[in-house]
Design a protein around this nucleic acid. Structure first.
Lengths: 328, 328
DNA sequence: AATAATACCGCAAACGTTTGCGAAATTGTT
DNA sequence: AACAATTTCGCAAACGTTTGCGGTATTATT
């Protein structure tokens, strides 16, 4: 372990600890001469301030917690990447925790955050989270909590989300423009607010803009599930398939390729996506972009606003754009 | 912030701080009666031990640092996910840091790790890292450093890697078995030890097992690069393309799909991969699996061995297996 | 030359824990 | 009843910082 402390330096230089501390912080009370002596010795001795001591003394950990169901996910990894980058730029570190979509693990992670006195928390909740008390406990401790992506269906929280309603609308509208009439629309877990929002918007916009269309709804828990659903319904000659997420898109694409259907001639495809998966194929899949990167930046700025004292609860969304591939 | 401390509890109960501390740890010196009183009040007051104070006192942060060029990567995200999971199970937290493949940022991150007195470090180095002193500095502080994936070409470090040589051999052998004669082999950045190992092995095994084959070599910095290279050489009627990594595979696949080539009839494809991307296509791409998940487990166990006192420097590799898709 | 201002530095408390050691109270032993 | 053993607890130091306050030197002002 690193042994050089302020005390050690002070002993060698025969000055007080406080002088050493101030010298290293370039405090005006200290003369240039001693500053120099201190800084030089500190460098020579590889002095590294002990973050734990500083945190204890100042009660500011400069550490953010981030809880997410899983890291391995096209959306979350770019979100995390973005938040980490911003945090680092602002001299914060990031503690990443996975819940595995398990509410119990989520609780454990929250405890860890509390014990580490995180300066703030970014959280995407598990599918089955119903008790928000632990989050409220953090808020009571004046620790900002920014929910993202999978957010509680509940007011009084800071949330940053992709524009669920708007993006589902855009996708439905795109299908309407292309005059797709038999649509297979696959959604995720219905317990998620996100799913319900997208579902409702998609249904509504299709009814309005594409009244003669018939929609077959599918609900998939995972990619494999989506593949199964797609395979099943592909038999009944659908014009196009809408995928609510990347995970679903991957399943749908497997089914489509397996049946040797040509995109877009035999079937149209559109998804709500981060953009990575759609660009893996040719023609590229048309998608409504929901950028994890952008969302991360937004979440971070929201966090900074809270830390700066804003007590204003806001629910922010990033607008999404339609990125045309050749799949419709 | 959470205000309840041992001191507060001790004042209310009119006992000493040390008694409270010991009671909460179920220390035998404390009577059951007082233990009960303490535990109950602690719960009622939502007591959470202050990790910073504990770390300071015990000089054990129970925090691992993890430095990686970027999180958004098929390999790293599963690696990180795995390490995080293991860490959490063992009561460690994980601080994730990205270098952006920039040696300077890497230095900053290392400093952060030192200042936070991490209990250990997992590191995948940047392409241009040449100075290993900061890593050695950590080792001198008795902080274990486990390099993974992109490791220094240098002895005396703990490293865990995918079996570069073996997996390139396997891929070359698979191509030989299928009697592919005109091979396009695309590799990554030559400055990486990993690349050089894979290149050499691929070349050697092909020469031995498939002597009549001709290999065209390509070196791609990124996916787009790989797409360009593939497009260019596809014209000259190659039998199969070998991709050293997922990133390269995505580029190659774009080029192949764009030219409407049928896999495996028109062209064979094989890659070294985590397995996610290959399964997105149909037929699935045949690949030599290098599991980030497995590597994460290995890295973690290596870390635990070091923490347990093992001073033995080891270079571990996970064996890879060939996963047959239908692309060859 | 006396006084006022300024530059420079140290004392000591505090942040919230852990832990070795000793002390008091209780119980057991003869 | 005297002593020993055991149970139960508190004292105080330590971990490495930060910071308000006060105290000497030194310099400036008249």
């Amino acid at each position: 372990m690193n042994n050089t402390t302020l005390k050690r330096i002070s002993q060698i230089l025969e000055i007080s600890i406080s002088t050493v501390s101030r010298a290293l912080k370039n405090h005006p009370d200290i003369s240039d001469k001693t500053k120099l002596r201190v800084v030089e010795l500190a460098n020579a001795m590889d002095y590294e301030p002990n973050a734990n001591a500083i945190n204890l003394r100042t009660s500011n950990s400069r550490l953010f917690g981030l809880i997410v169901p899983g890291i391995s996910n096209f959306f979350y990894d770019s979100f995390i990447s973005s938040v980490e980058e911003e945090s680092r730029k602002n001299n914060y570190a990031l503690m990443v925790l996975q819940s595995g979509d398990d509410p119990l693990m989520e609780l454990n992670n929250l405890k860890l955050c509390r014990q580490n006195r995180v300066s703030g928390l970014f959280a995407s909740i598990s599918t089955q989270t119903t008790n928000y008390d632990p989050f409220l406990k953090l808020k009571d401790m004046k620790t900002p909590v920014i929910f993202f992506d999978k957010v509680p269906d509940h007011n009084g929280f800071n949330k940053v989300c992709v524009a669920d309603t708007a993006s589902a609308n855009m996708a439905a509208a795109a299908l309407a423009r292309k005059d797709k009439k038999k649509i297979l629309a696959i959604f995720g877990d219905e317990r998620l607010l996100m799913t319900r929002k997208r579902l409702e918007a998609f249904k509504e916009t299709t009814a309005k803009r594409n009244p003669s269309a018939t929609i077959t709804y599918g609900f998939a828990i995972n990619s494999q599930d989506a593949e199964g659903i797609t395979s099943t319904y592909l038999a009944q000659k659908v014009d196009a398939v809408f995928c609510m997420s990347d995970e679903i898109l991957t399943g749908a694409m497997r089914a489509i390729q397996k049946q040797h259907l040509r995109i877009p001639d035999d079937i149209g495809v559109i998804a709500i996506s981060n953009g990575f998966i759609p660009r893996l194929f040719y023609p590229e899949i048309t998608f409504v972009e929901t950028s994890g990167h952008k969302l991360g930046k937004l979440a971070f700025s929201s966090m900074m606003a809270c830390l700066a004292g804003s007590t204003f609860i806001q629910e922010l969304t990033i607008e999404s754009i339609l990125v045309e591939g050749g799949s419709l």
